[in-house]
Amino acid sequence: MSQYSGKITFYEGKCFSGRKLEVCSTCSSFQQRGFPNRVNSIRVQSGAWVCFDHPELHGQQFVLEHGEYPHWQSWNGRGDRMGSCRPVGMHGQHYRIQLFEGSCFGGRSMELTEDCSCLQGRGWEQPHVNAVRVYGDGAWVLYEEPNYRGRMYVVERGEFSNFRAWQGFSANVQSVRRVINY
């Protein structure tokens, strides 16, 4: 199994009941695979995944790592809507991210190699991040609120010159953590 593959199973009912959809690679539309866009439980057998509440890999993102999610609240969802997913691109275990105050990599910056539950507690004065560079092998999750809460956005190796580049609704980012691929 390559580092970009994995296996995730979506269930229509809570606690892994009802119809199920098994996915081993990008699925841009659950409905095109004959599955409703309502998901109430999920099992991640391998890999790390980013799921979207709309088809075509759009909408609110949910990052799911190895484990069981018996109801939609357990993956920080605001409802049972889910329409597409893809594996998170992981290359290894060397994590490094640089956050920028200004868009296009301007202004003050901060570099991290470990999770940070509160950027302001580490000296980041603003409640927002306007650009990101992801170096190394790993992927990261940006959260709108401290303590890994609120909307989340996955960023993988590369450059993101503004919040729209990571499909953000705004530049609010107050905590950051590494995606762990089991």
Rank of each mutant, 00 (worst) to 15 (best):
C116K: 02
S161D: 12
R157D: 01
H54T: 07
S41W: 07
R38S: 15
L112H: 02
Y135T: 00
N76M: 04
P70V: 09
F100T: 06
F10S: 03
D80E: 13
F160K: 06
R133E: 13
D53Y: 07
P70L: 09
G77W: 06
V23G: 04
E22G: 10
G83C: 08
R33D: 12
F163Q: 00
R86N: 05
G79Y: 08
I97R: 11
W49D: 02
R78V: 09
T9H: 07
Q61C: 09
H71G: 03
W75P: 14
R96Q: 14
E101T: 02
V154C: 11
S29C: 07
E22T: 15
A171D: 10
Y11D: 04
Q60A: 10
V155E: 02
H128S: 12
Q45A: 15
H128F: 05
D137E: 13
K20I: 01
E125I: 08
E68N: 15
V39L: 08
E145T: 02
F169C: 03
W49K: 07
S29Q: 05
V129T: 07
M110L: 15
R178F: 03
G138M: 04
Y153W: 05
A139Q: 02
G6D: 05
E159H: 11
D115Y: 03
Y182F: 09
P127I: 00
H128E: 09
H91P: 01
A131C: 02
V44A: 13
E111H: 08
C15I: 00
H58K: 15
S117E: 14
V23Y: 03
L57W: 06
S25T: 12
I42Q: 04
V39M: 08
S5D: 09
Q31W: 03
H128W: 08
F160N: 00
G150F: 10
Y182C: 03
V88R: 05
S41D: 14
K20S: 14
G158Y: 07
I180L: 07
V179K: 08
G158A: 03
V88Q: 08
P87S: 11
G150T: 05
S2V: 06
V134H: 07
Q31F: 06
L57F: 09
P36E: 15
R164H: 07
